[in-house]
Design a protein around this nucleic acid. Sequence first.
RNA 1: GGGCCGUUGGCGCAGGGGUAGCGCGCUUCCUUGACACGGAAGAGGGCACAAGUUCAAAUCUUGUACGGCCCACCA
Length: 910
Amino acid sequence: MSQHRHLSHLQPTVPERPSLDGLENKWDQAWSEQGTYAFAAGTPRGQVFSIDTPPPTVSGSLHVGHVFSYTHTDIVARFWRMRGKAVFYPMGWDDNGLPTERRVQNYYGVRCDPARPYDPDFTPPFEGGAGKSKNAADQVPISRRNFVELCQKLSSEDEKQFEASWRHLGLSVDWSNTYQTIDRHARATSQLAFLRNLARGEAYQQLAPTLWDVTFRTAVAQAELKDVVRKGAYHKIGFKLLEAADADRSPALPTSDGRVYIETTRPELLPACVALVAHPDDDRYKALFGRQVEVPLFGTAVPVVPHRLAEPDKGSGIAMICTFGDVTDVIWWRELHLPTRAILGWDGRILPEPPLGIDRPEAKAAYGELAGLTVFSAQKRIVEMLRGSGDLVGEPQPVEHPVKFFEKGDKPLEIIPTRQWYLSNGGTNAELRQELLERGDELKWYPDFMRVRYQNWVEGLTSDWLISRQRFFGVPFPVWYPVDQFGHPVYDRPIVPSEDRLPVDPATDTPDGYQLDQRGKPGGFIGDPDVMDTWATSSLTPQIACHWRDNPALFASTFPMDLRPQAQDIIRTWLFATVVRADLEQHSLPFYNAAISGFILDPDRKKMSKSQGNVVTPMGLLEEYGSDAVRYWAASARLGTDAAFEPSQMKVGRRLAIKLLNASKFALSFLEQAAPGRTPADRNESALDPAAPVSRGEMALDPAVVTEPLDRSMLTALREVVQTATDALVSYDHTRALEVTETFFWTFCDDYIELVKSRAHGAGGAAAAASAQTALGLALSVLLRLFAPFQPFATEEVWSWWHQAGESIHRQAWPGPDELSLGLTAQASPAILTVAGGVLGALRKAKSEAKVSMRTEITSATVGVPAELSAAAVAAKGDIMAAGRTAELTLAASATDAIELVSAVLAEQS
RNA sequence: GGGCCGUUGGCGCAGGGGUAGCGCGCUUCCUUGACACGGAAGAGGGCACAAGUUCAAAUCUUGUACGGCCCACCA
């Protein structure tokens, strides 16, 4: 960092015609070569600013929303770097999980079949999705290892493209510090955290009803659900009331025909029915509690039971409980201790064999009609059967109702009993839940109202976190199970590896104490076949990036991280899960601040997303407008606020970047003029001392030279801007910082530069000229640094014109409060600049109304100025007259509180 | 059903007790030696609606409407 009271610079080398073209590649390369954004390892925690960068899903393409939110983070990173922090700014790639699997299937025309052996010479049938077929059967089955290799291959190609785009955008990421959520280190970290959870009892296995996606054939977690409104129909079905053991006990049965009528949207689950349920206070059905009814077609006898969750005003007020139609069924089943009659398989089809309770031949025959069918077909078939048997009353009544889907799936979820791994997240433990709520309070949220989304979510948790997935491209569970003498795995005695063996793949690695050939044999072992949910790994991004596992010194200097930037829609997943993991392992927050960005809306105010088909690819934008311009658009939107996709804002940003180049060129031309071909060797000498020796040394801009009131006024106003912008950035309000800087900058260009132009050229003598020239240089230096986080390319370009090669603006000190303090006696009211601009505006108005050029001379003019501002106006009168080309200017008392043109006599035009 | 944001000139946004502000767009003018990828000067709204608090309300309170989102419900 260099001193800025005295600006160091070389003889300016300003291009004849400055341009934004090519700046991105030029500076990206320079920053890369010079290590401008490298993290200084060994920096104590207090001087580090660490960022938990969201690892983008590389299987998707980069879109404008990414550019938007990552720019916000980069502004913060650049600000703190200039404030003297060692910024720890890694980049991760989320390549682990389903999206990559799907992309690989389409891209290479393959599918994973874990039963196949590894083929080291395997070549995919095609690349690039050229032979893409909708039919999964056309995909070539390959081994899990081949499949994972293809996932890694494609991911790393995608990652290169992402990095290129990010670099083009100017993210000041330390590109020597990247990770993949599937790489060796991430796998080891994820497995280590899991083993610790297991040892502490926070991770556990359970055979239980599980939300199940039949397309992907995997369990999914509560956090990955979405509601989809679907068409369905209420089917009214009669259940025959069976004779009561004590027949005269029930005087007022609700049925005159000996039947109980329920309404269901899922008649195909009839064979899975285990009870009917009504509200305990429902007088219509009270008398039935404890009685048995017979399930139509299948002849199963099931009880009628009371439960508070049954809603009297829904349907007929009495519902059938199936194992399992929805999550309420699971609650009823669990709380009422009902039997299980599962009829759905992992593939979403009706199981071939009927469940217990269906034993009569005609019941078995009825079941046989459904066996093997999909849910959809089974429903059609059973409706025909019920109609035939007379158990269906009337026609099904169409309804639209919300159904739970996996957020990435396109078929409704089913609930299937399976063995799965769970991790405590407060869903079943009030004490932990309270602790996690307190973590949410402890965290600083930007904007603060995002906090309630976290609270809502934590308060609404109904189960622990299901972390196992029956997929292939993910981090495997680092466990094996002993196989007993009968060949059955012993699930409650998992075998774990020692921590130094991580990462392991239990599908190919052998547990300690066993031989390779004992796999799957009685008395041997078997590996857990599942992988972890992608969030189970990405919830550890702070531990991965900061190297909790293998670099305690780095971890100590970067964790808990300073900032977690992320999107609002993954508070319940990524943010919450990260808090859970750090709470369990480190007993702390994983980060102190969360910056939540909004969505990008297209011009029709809809959320931009791939499925909407309205996504604009960012690279085209970056090339068309320039990265600084696109960043400007992003920076104009506040955290947590949805923003419209606005090319017009990008044009404004581009105009600003060009203006920065041109205004700087102009200001620097005076510095050159001030000391042509020479610079003082002694920093304490005046920059303008013509006797100073010529050298390639440094030239000082001495604030003491700034003597003119207008110049001092401008610098005083700028000082306030510095204060405001700094305060705003400290509180993550980049919009405000940009706004005040930009507003000042336009005044600086339109008014100040115009006002001092002729004086800076020497019209008022050497001292007055030096004052203007030095003020221009000082202001330029400060303004460039204020803009640097927002427009890194244009500012770096300008900086390079007058500073030593390699002396990046992005490593300079952020303007401080002292830098522009000109000494108490040299302060001047910022009002001078304002008034001078106002009076100049009045003179311009005279010309504009006369429809003449601004060059036109004014013979004489009178401008009214409010009394309290008249002294300020007088102080800048000479500059105003010069800028307005006015020979005779009278400053009169204004009748109003505004500056107003009273009269003007224009010279004849030639 | 519970909750969180928002509603300010044609569009995008800022302001947040004293009587509206920025950018784009629009109109008119200006090819001035930093910039035509420019510059200057203008026109245009009374801040969704209603009631209240106050000397004074875009600004505070309450309610309503509309838009967006989160959570819950899912027979």
